[in-house]
Design a protein around this nucleic acid. Structure first.
Lengths: 242, 242
DNA sequence: TAGTGGTCTAGACCACCCT
DNA sequence: GGGTGGTCTAGACCACTAT
């Protein structure tokens, strides 16, 4: 069933993927996972490898562990957004929603002042402009506008931007590494309201993001407007008291 | 030097604390940490234990690892401030604004259903309810509502809640350690609009927070409504290689 | 080539939960 | 008491980086 894409070289990744699939398919919230020792036997790996895979599931909020009792599937309503850089598609899947996309615009344009500055481009350099309506389980979730410097990532076509843009970038050898995000509140305009299926001036969570490679080269600038009634940001913060 | 507080039973915690202290004291940004194998020898533990301790430092953004090269102290300027649990006063000062507070309400009330659940209290247990208008450089920034379980933190008076609530808690021996935050977008009602000096139905960034001590005891539940035109959340997120 | 972090094994003991 | 997750050991090989 889990037809490997050929990229999963590590055992803990293969196990992680297998467990993730099973959680999404057959297990219900609060169902117990097989015990770690049973996974050792079933997958033919060591317990350390099992714990690495389950640990990642726990980090991502898909399961919770209870010492002495077992590991259980988390309640989706309590899934927290982690601080990992994720594409919309990945984010939705981690919330156990099916992502989809409707392309609204895909054009090559000269970079404006703001885009050029954020991407460290010469003003007027060519950028690909992508505007998409993003859906979760078929319902509008956000309107997203993205600018990509073509000189750094190559050209784009409609097929490429149908799914995860991060996958498309990775396919061109461009690996997103980190991003600066600004989260703010706003209200939608008439156009956005129509796309999202809400009344004009409804509240929206706005996320502005600039994505960089490991070398610090900006490869994406994105503005996303999320429906406030369907999306929030959950983070756990710890106190620094040195 | 590392005068144990008596609670650190695990080797990886002791090592984590030792490394954390060294990072804060003698090491500079981008300085290399001792290699994992050297830490094995120096602390007399296995490499798995070393990796657990260093892994926690990496999770918290204090160090970064580079395969084949080493582990290095992270640059503090790239540590996102929003990942730290801060009080309003601390947050404002870090933005170089002067915080102030206007007390709107301070009463002892029985905990409602939601508050009791979030703070793990018996329904009807006594909580202190604090409502404050928070100012930055003299201008309204947010309306904040806080519930505190009096049985865990003692009584409160107007003088105590004039400034930083976290300072007040620390003065009673209650140390906030971490918090779960939910960030969402909404619009203000007429009352909040009047206090914040904006039009009704203006957008606002809403932050719901439950604060815990190190032992996991909930000591504060807070709801804050920030003026959207004066406040945003900035975080740097990094990619987990999928 | 030598050293580093990343992965992995096959054990072990402990603290805790459930019945 | 039996099973679970949490911690820990003492090795090993691999992929990568620096020189």
């Amino acid at each position: 069933m889990t037809a490997s894409t050929g990229k999963t070289a590590f055992k803990h990744e293969a196990l992680y993927t297998a467990l993730r699939t099973e959680i999404g398919a057959t297990l219900r919230p609060h169902d117990p996972l097989p015990s770690e020792r049973e996974l050792v036997a079933r997958f033919g790996v060591s317990r350390a490898t099992v714990r690495q895979a389950v640990g990642r599931l726990e980090e991502e909020g898909l399961v919770y562990r209870s010492q002495g009792a077992g590991t259980f599937v988390a309640d989706p309503s309590t899934i927290s957004k982690s601080l990992a850089l994720t594409s919309f598609s990945e984010d939705m899947r981690s919330r156990r929603l099916t992502p989809d996309s409707r392309l609204l615009d895909l054009t090559l344009v000269p970079a404006g002042v703001t885009v050029a500055r954020d991407l460290s481009l010469s003003p007027g350099a060519e950028v690909a402009h992508v505007r998409r309506l993003r859906l979760a389980d078929g319902l509008p979730m956000c309107v997203e506008e993205v600018w990509l410097p073509t000189e750094r990532i190559g050209g784009l076509d409609a097929g490429t931007v149908a799914g995860s843009l991060y996958d498309a970038l990775a396919g061109r050898g461009v690996q997103p590494h980190h991003a600066d995000q600004v989260i703010s509140a706003t209200v939608v305009d008439a156009d956005q309201a129509a796309l999202l299926g809400v009344a004009p001036y409804s509240p929206a969570l706005r996320v502005d993001r600039i994505t960089y490679t490991e070398a610090g080269v900006a490869v994406e600038r994105a503005e996303s407007m999320y429906r406030a009634d369907r999306y929030d940001f959950r983070i756990t913060v710890t106190r620094r008291t040195p």
